[in-house]
Design a binder for these strands. Structure first.
Lengths: 337, 337
DNA sequence: CTGAAAGCGCTTACAG
DNA sequence: CTGAAAGCGCTTACAG
């Protein structure tokens, strides 16, 4: 762990009694090294605190050693989770983790992507919703043979690493959570139709309704767009109806918050008169009053895993499997205790 | 603009009829090049679409060409603004822009900083609140002779570039905005005492009160901590008092939102019965209902400017001036139209 | 499975 | 103000 400034591949080679080429092979996860030598080199490197010089690798190999996350969802918690996960995997392997927002201003995600790629070489890509469902973007990445992982894609892609949660099952769990607490008149507030996760969560909602023998006519389905504003609107629709809904499941936390604010404004108590659950376990869901019961996904683990799989892919030029499902958890809070 | 992949310093030197050393000097903003040659080289480089290879520069110079922003404020808008500003300045000069959160878990910002610096070399640092007021952090950076810019420091530092807005004046403007709309009974909700900006905003508040001859006893000062929760509490204090406050100035948007939510819950109409203004122009301030009137600072410009000054400092080994003040603007919205 | 040589594109002293 | 030489720490073919 000495981390003596100028430790080079030479020092490791000498100390381990092998050629520098072997050391290089070890750090590139090249298959052509006997396990015994590999362990020897890794042991010496660890002991001395050696880490390969990325600049030298870049210059010599003409690779960038950059893994990039392209996103367009400004949820800070979500982004930070992905970034932390990526970085953990990247720093172990001597890669850079980078995050770049693709903005939709007068142009498509694809054009924004191409603009970025012509300026900045990358060795691997992670895409999150909604970009993980943009076919044009995925096609361009594929065309360039850049290893790519999709986080929560609506439709799994054959030539990408697909990392996701079971959105339908999660939706069902949330609905059952409400039902278990005695609610029999439920509402589902959907997100944007273009966002397939919302539709899957809704499918789970209806599956729960069916499984528990609740009457569909006691239920309400309100169209939203993931914004807080649409939560306000949704509450108005609830209030106008005479269904006497007591359990609300919003497809994300912002709409849950909007619903609660509108309810408070109307003098309705949460959770006493109406329980509300959200989705995403966002920072605001935790900061609200009451704090929001919400579904959490292990986004950091998902991102770390994605990054590792991409690096494996780069090293071996080969993916083994491409579908990986992660488990979710309900964070129980005041809006539906 | 051709961007022919492998354009090197050699190509530029040859085409411009100078030595590669001269080209190198030009791209390092070295003073020892005649202006005429500089223009010639820059012209050729631009024509051919040449950009220096950062890896090679890093390897040869042992510099990192990394400018890093250390932060611990999870406000996404704020961070994105800083990042975009940095990147604009950095990409022009062939630097990397990096953002890193320093977390306070069982250790100080200083320890988190040292941990980072031992692993990752950086050429320049930008600090934002609350880290821009952490003396131990600043001392460590100074000790290493790393050029450093402070965004909105509570106390300006001699050996740093100080970039800020006039917090007191901004506070005064906000208070006068309320007064101009006929409010004579005002409340100020403070942020954390450790955050000097809050105290300065408050000073501006009282200055406005005084300047307009309002009675101090008609005013209220409520202690908050920048959280939404403290906005709820603040409203309760308002409601319990018999001061009949109609204009509320919260030291940040989250507290303004908390205040409004609590008011709605209590059946009080905003802005009809009570106007509320915030500070920061956050995304949530814009998404709320009603949307929040808030003070915006030109954070992107501030960050770009900071990055440019740091790069100048690196190039010339020398700062000229170290205090730069930026102008602010009130974004008028529904919470106090 | 392993090694010796050349080279990636730039900067750093050192001269002039 | 400007140039020729050496070198930064690694990888890439090419042999064996």
């Amino acid at each position: 762990m000495a981390q003596d400034k100028n430790l080079t591949i030479q020092d490791i080679a000498q100390k381990a009694g092998v050629s520098i080429k072997t050391v290089s092979r070890v750090f590139n996860n090249s298959p052509n090294v006997r396990q015994q030598k590999r362990d020897l080199v890794l042991g010496v490197a660890k002991e001395l605190g050696y880490r390969p010089n990325i600049s030298a690798r870049q210059l010599a190999s003409k690779r960038s050693f950059v893994l990039i996350h392209f996103y367009d969802n400004p949820n800070m918690d979500y982004l930070a989770g992905i970034y932390d996960g990526m970085r953990e995997a990247c720093s172990e392997q001597g890669y850079y983790a980078v995050a770049e927002r693709l903005k939709l201003k007068n142009r498509s995600y694809k054009d924004a992507l191409l603009d970025y790629l012509t300026r900045n070489p990358v060795d691997g890509v992670i895409l999150s919703p909604p970009i993980s469902d943009d076919k044009a973007v995925i096609r361009e990445i594929e065309k360039r043979d850049i290893p790519c992982a999709l986080i929560s894609p609506g439709v799994k892609k054959r030539n990408c690493i697909n990392v996701f949660i079971d959105e339908k099952m999660a939706g069902q769990k949330m609905a059952e959570f409400l039902i278990d607490r005695g609610h029999t008149k439920l509402a589902f507030i959907s997100g944007l139709d273009s966002h397939s996760a919302s539709a899957q969560r809704e499918a789970g909602f209806w599956a729960a309704v069916e499984a528990h023998g609740l009457k569909r006519k006691d239920m309400m389905r309100i169209g939203g767009d993931f914004s807080m504003q649409s939560g306000f609107t949704a509450f108005n629709a609830l209030a106008k109806s005479n269904k006497n809904i007591t359990g609300v499941f919003a497809a994300n936390d912002e709409m849950a918050i909007g619903t609660i604010i509108a309810a408070l404004r109307a003098g309705k108590k949460v959770p006493e008169e109406m329980s509300v659950v959200g989705f995403d376990d966002s920072a605001f869901a935790r900061a609200m009053w009451p704090p929001i019961t919400s579904l959490a996904q292990p986004i950091e683990d998902m991102a770390k895993f994605s990054a590792q799989k991409i690096i494996d892919w780069i090293d071996t030029k080969d993916r083994e499997q491409s579908h990986y499902e992660f488990a979710t958890e309900i964070m129980v809070r005041g809006s539906c205790p």
